Simulated assay, not measured.
Amino acid sequence: MERVYKTMRNAGALNIVVGIIVTAVGLAAGIISIINGAILLKRKSEITF
């Protein structure tokens, strides 16, 4: 039974680590998107099609 508990503990710890990584990557992607959008809006007059 102790082996099962250790496996469950490791799986839980791994899930927490993966959750933190996914949150950090999502936050970084959101910030980069906002910055790029602001740059595009700032240079809107320079864009010609």
Rank of each mutant, 00 (worst) to 15 (best):
E2A: 06
E2L: 10
E2C: 02
R3P: 08
R3M: 15
R3S: 15
V4Q: 12
V4C: 09
Y5V: 06
Y5C: 04
Y5N: 08
Y5H: 08
Y5F: 13
K6I: 06
K6S: 03
T7R: 14
T7H: 12
T7Y: 13
T7C: 10
M8A: 12
M8F: 11
M8D: 05
M8T: 03
R9H: 06
R9M: 05
R9D: 04
R9V: 05
N10L: 07
N10M: 06
A11G: 03
A11V: 12
G12R: 09
G12L: 07
G12Q: 08
G12I: 03
G12K: 09
A13N: 10
A13L: 09
A13T: 09
L14Y: 06
L14G: 01
L14P: 00
L14C: 03
N15R: 03
I16A: 07
I16R: 11
V17F: 04
V17C: 01
V17L: 09
V18D: 02
V18K: 12
G19D: 04
G19R: 09
G19I: 08
I20D: 00
I21D: 01
I21A: 09
I21P: 00
V22N: 03
V22G: 00
V22C: 05
V22M: 11
V22L: 14
T23S: 04
T23G: 01
T23H: 01
T23I: 10
A24R: 02
A24P: 01
A24E: 04
A24L: 15
V25W: 02
V25Q: 01
V25L: 12
G26F: 12
G26M: 13
G26C: 11
L27P: 02
L27Q: 02
A28R: 06
A28C: 04
A28M: 10
A28V: 14
A29D: 05
A29T: 13
A29C: 11
G30F: 12
G30I: 12
G30H: 06
I31H: 01
I31Q: 03
I32Y: 05
I32H: 02
I32A: 05
S33Q: 08
S33D: 11
S33M: 11
I34S: 00
I34A: 05
I34Q: 01
I34G: 00
I35W: 04
I35K: 04
I35Q: 05
I35H: 03
N36L: 14
N36Q: 13
N36I: 13
G37R: 06
G37Q: 07
G37I: 03
A38S: 10
I39K: 08
I39Y: 11
I39V: 14
I39F: 10
I39R: 08
L40Q: 13
L40S: 12
L41F: 14
K42I: 09
K42P: 00
K42Y: 15
R43K: 14
R43E: 15
K44F: 05
K44G: 00
E46N: 10
E46Y: 10
E46P: 00
E46W: 08
I47W: 14
I47Q: 11
T48H: 07
T48M: 04
T48W: 03
F49C: 03
F49L: 13
F49I: 13
